[in-house]
Amino acid sequence: MTDSIDSIDQERLRQQDHQAFEALVSQLHRPMVSVARAIVGDSLAEEVVQEAWVSAYRNLPKFEGRSSVKTWLFTIVSNEAKSRLRKEKRLVALEDFNPEGSGDYLGPDRFYRFGGHWKVPPPDWHLDSPDQLLEEKHLQKCIDHTVSILPPQQRAVFILRDIEQQALAEICNILEVTESYVRVLLHRARMKLMQVIDRYQETGEC
């Protein structure tokens, strides 16, 4: 991509250049909202992210580039969300931890109880490369919709890891969860999206 985060001039950011800052907002606003939602829930997320942007803007001159801009911003929104959570003394319902759980897609009906072999094996795919899938416009819409309705922590982990390519250790810090839990959530999210692709391959719908 030509206008990725890396192409935004860090010196211009440090000088609080509006154009450079807008480019940053354009690329990271939605991921930041996902992070906030995973920590404080839907109702406070938007407000927390706005505060995070203001605080990021103010602190830009002090940004030293020890971490990437992305990681720096995700940390700011995460801290903002955590302190908000403490103030509100509110508990956000976390997903049930189900060690077996990749959701229904790999649920008990999928395998024989004894022996663990496939009862419903993976279907054939006629679109069997990322390139072919990328050309399907309708599938893209189905995927966007499914990402938008993932449980908040799953969505945040999926976006941070698979889209924003943050390291597992960073994601643990940002969301305050363990690495094994991050991996479980990531797999669950991928399974939900793979289920969409399965259905699309079979029916052309989602």
Partner: peptide, 20 residues
């Protein structure tokens, strides 16, 4: 199955971020 997960992961990664 593993091939499908592989394709899914790479497809999702290559779609890139949603802009504001």
């Amino acid at each position: 199955f593993v091939a499908h997960v592989h394709i899914t992961r790479d497809f999702l990664r290559r779609r890139g971020p949603l802009r504001a």
